[in-house]
């Protein structure tokens, strides 16, 4: 099997991304949703690195690092928000937090 490495890497990234997407759509537990966001971010980072190796430039890897930093910040803020939500609603069900409806 002689698959182009970029193609293979991109396919892997795509599969991981879609798996994360399915999870975020299906899950109601807000921690699982945060987890799914992590999966998707990771997949995007992978795609950047694959692209970086395809073009032989450092930009993709730089982006990966930014994604990493962003994920770290996002998780910390996200967890704090979940904590507040848990205190307010006494549940982790994201459908409970639907007061802002039209």
């Amino acid at each position: 099997m002689n698959v182009h490495p970029t193609t293979a890497g991109m396919l892997l990234a795509g599969v991981l991304f879609v798996l994360g997407l399915i999870s975020i759509l299906v899950r109601r537990d807000i921690i699982f949703m945060l987890l799914s966001v992590e999966i998707m971010l990771n997949a995007a980072g992978l795609a950047f690195v694959v692209a970086s190796s395809h073009w032989g430039t450092a930009d993709g890897q730089v982006m990966f690092m930014f994604i990493l930093a962003m994920a770290a910040a996002e998780v910390s803020v996200g967890l704090a928000l979940i904590l507040q939500l848990y205190h307010q609603l006494k549940t982790l069900d994201s459908d409970e937090a639907s007061k802002m409806n039209g």
Partner: peptide, 18 residues
């Protein structure tokens, strides 16, 4: 009709994005 799509459900919005 449009206001009803604003259900406040996070997953519903994500579905819209998808």
């Amino acid at each position: 009709m449009l206001a009803r799509t604003q259900s406040g459900l996070l997953r519903w919005y994500i579905l819209g994005v998808v």
